[in-house]
Amino acid sequence: MSGDQQPKICIGFDFDAQSVWAGSFGLSTPTALSRGEFGPRTAMPRILELLEREGVSATFFTPGHTIDTWPEVCRRILADGHELGHHGYMHESPVALDEPAERAVIEKGLEAMDRNLGHRPTGYRSPAFDLSANSTRLLLEYGFVYDSSMMADDFTPYWARTGDVLHMDRAFEFGREIELVEVPCSWSLDDFPQFELVVTPPVVMAGMNEPDKVRRMWLADLEFMVERVPGGVFPLTLHPQSIGRGARIKVLEDVIARGKELGARFCTYHEAATTWRASAPPPQGAR
């Protein structure tokens, strides 16, 4: 099977640690922050051991705050051959930020990586899977190769756009494609809403699903992709503090096992983006 036609599985971890509770949910109590601490303290050794045992490379989208707080864990991620991607600084969504503020967050995350790790990321994922009108243009300007925050496809990368305009009284206005690969994501392939209980109005997330339900969902999508989407990319989004707790990690073990049975190649998001880019038509102008 050729590389382009081989199914690919991208295991992406949003390594948020404490930042998601403070930055996204506005919680700073000891119990809330301890949920984030579980990720680097307890889950990450389990996850990194599993990936090493299975010979699987993964991508860790990591806020700058996590890097500043847990630099030794982030150094191990790189030492083990995994990819480290940008994920804001304090898990702040860019949606409400003006352009100078969004630039500042991008730069602060980059500075944390450089200061602690001497590393420059090629990929970005927005906290909470959302972007501002400026985001894709800024990512291209800062030299990113790919983004993984949008959902216009399920298993096939595509070129990101800038300059889209939503008109309420006439057709949607498509902006121009740019040389930024979008590796799409999906809430249905994200462990956080499946497993976590969050009650901080207006955010209410009921989660707490049994692992078997999540396993069935993910394997069904994986099998669909392998059967129907030649060369597809299966973009799993996991959080160490969620997937690494108790029996949940067995779901990841089963996804890896089934992926190997199906002949899938495990690769980083960077590898998936550059593989797609190598044979993709060039970006088109405004449609």
Results as ranks from 00 to 15, higher is better:
Val183Cys: 08
Ile249Ala: 13
Gly23His: 06
Ala220Glu: 15
Ile47Asn: 01
Arg228Gly: 04
Val255Trp: 00
Gln5Ser: 09
Ala58Trp: 00
Thr237Val: 09
Gln241Asn: 14
Glu253Asp: 07
Tyr269Cys: 13
Ile178Arg: 01
Val229Lys: 04
Glu227Tyr: 01
Val105Met: 08
Phe129Asp: 11
Pro7Asp: 06
Val165Tyr: 14
Glu271Gly: 10
Arg103Asn: 06
Ser28Pro: 05
Pro94Val: 03
Thr29Glu: 15
Pro71Phe: 02
Asp130Ala: 12
Thr274Val: 04
Asp190Arg: 05
Glu177Asn: 04
Gly285His: 08
Cys10Tyr: 05
Ala101Ser: 10
Gly12Leu: 15
Pro127Leu: 04
Gly175Cys: 01
Ile243Val: 15
Val105Cys: 11
Met205Tyr: 09
Asp16Gly: 03
Val73Ile: 14
His91Glu: 10
Met168Phe: 15
Met150Cys: 12
Gly163Lys: 06
Pro230Thr: 10
Leu197Gly: 05
Thr122Met: 02
Gly55Asn: 12
Leu222Cys: 03
Gly88Thr: 09
Met113Arg: 04
Phe144Lys: 12
Val251His: 00
Ile243Met: 13
Ser93Trp: 01
Arg248Ala: 14
Ala220Thr: 13
Phe13Cys: 05
Ile47Ala: 09
Ile11Gly: 08
Gly231Lys: 15
Leu33Tyr: 11
Val199Gly: 10
Asn134Gln: 15
Gly246Leu: 08
Met168Asn: 10
Phe224Val: 04
Gln18Ala: 12
Met208Ala: 09
Glu271Asp: 15
Leu97Glu: 06
Ala79Ile: 03
Gly232Ser: 13
Gly64Ile: 00
Glu102Tyr: 03
Pro283Ser: 04
Asp14Ile: 03
Gln5His: 00
Ala22Met: 09
Thr156Pro: 11
Val183Gly: 02
Ala79Gly: 14
Ile178Gly: 08
Thr200Asn: 07
Ser2Cys: 11
Trp70Asp: 05
Phe195Asp: 03
Thr42Ile: 10
Ala133Gly: 10
Thr59Pro: 01
Leu97Asn: 03
Glu102Met: 02
Val229Gln: 06
Ser242Cys: 14
Ile178Val: 15
Leu252Asn: 04
Asp221Glu: 15
Pro211Gln: 08
Ala58His: 00
Glu223Ala: 05
Asp80Leu: 07
Glu37Phe: 02
Asp169Cys: 05
Ala247Lys: 11
Leu131Trp: 04
Ala152Ser: 14
Asp147Tyr: 02
Trp21Gly: 01
Phe195Glu: 03
Pro282Arg: 00
Val56Glu: 11
His87Ala: 04
Ile256Cys: 14
